[in-house]
């Protein structure tokens, strides 16, 4: 049992390192629709969908701290958002069990939307740099689409590579898979 948990923790750590590398080396240099994808958030969603809300929250916390460091942002801001996102996604999957490709797309899009809205509210509270609707049109919606589109292949790839549990990819498994 301890070995299994250790392997899971190792995989999660591997995902964190992979997320940092991908974000720093690749994703931050590629702009699509004027925005860049948030690999930390995508991985948090993937982990939360495959391993449940607690793992999602923990992964989100660590990924958030790494993101804050990588993006040179206020430490704790993204970890707060990702903890919430990871937890809510895990709860949603446990509740609705939507882990097919369309489900992943929908959950990832919603998660990205929620995360960005939270982030936007914080930014807005600290002093808005642009109009709310401008940000929605220029940042939130394009990134939501981009994150959602990237999450699906990432999820399928990680499931195929067995980095995340395969047995949870099915609806029934998601319903029965308790923490």
């Amino acid at each position: 049992m301890f070995r299994v948990q250790l392997i899971a923790a190792g995989k999660a750590l591997l995902l964190i390192v992979l997320a940092v590398a991908l974000q720093v080396l690749v994703v931050s240099r590629v702009s699509v629709l004027g925005v860049t994808a948030d690999i930390f958030l995508i991985f948090t969603v993937v982990v939360a969908m495959s391993r449940g809300s607690m793992h999602g929250a923990i992964f989100g916390f660590v990924a958030g701290i790494m993101a804050d460091i990588a993006f040179m942002e206020t430490l704790g801001l993204r970890s707060f958002i990702y903890v919430l996102t990871g937890y809510l996604v895990g709860m949603a999957v446990l509740r609705f069990g939507t882990t097919n490709a369309w489900g992943v797309l929908l959950v990832a899009g919603t998660a990205s939307l929620v995360a960005q809205m939270l982030y936007g509210i914080v930014q807005y509270a600290m002093g808005p740099r642009a109009g709310f609707f401008t940000m929605v049109a220029a940042q939130i919606l394009p990134e939501m689409v981009l994150d959602a589109l990237i999450t699906v292949p990432v999820y399928l790839l990680l499931a195929r590579l067995r980095v995340i549990p395969v047995h949870r990819a099915g609806v029934g498994a998601a319903r029965s898979g308790a923490e």
Binding site: M54, G60, F61, I65, T74, L75, G76, L77, F80, Y87
Partner: peptide, 16 residues
């Protein structure tokens, strides 16, 4: 765990 993580994040945020 969730509450602890949220509190930790908020603490980090406040400290920052």
């Amino acid at each position: 765990v969730f509450v602890i993580l949220i509190l930790a994040s908020l603490a980090l945020l406040t400290l920052s």
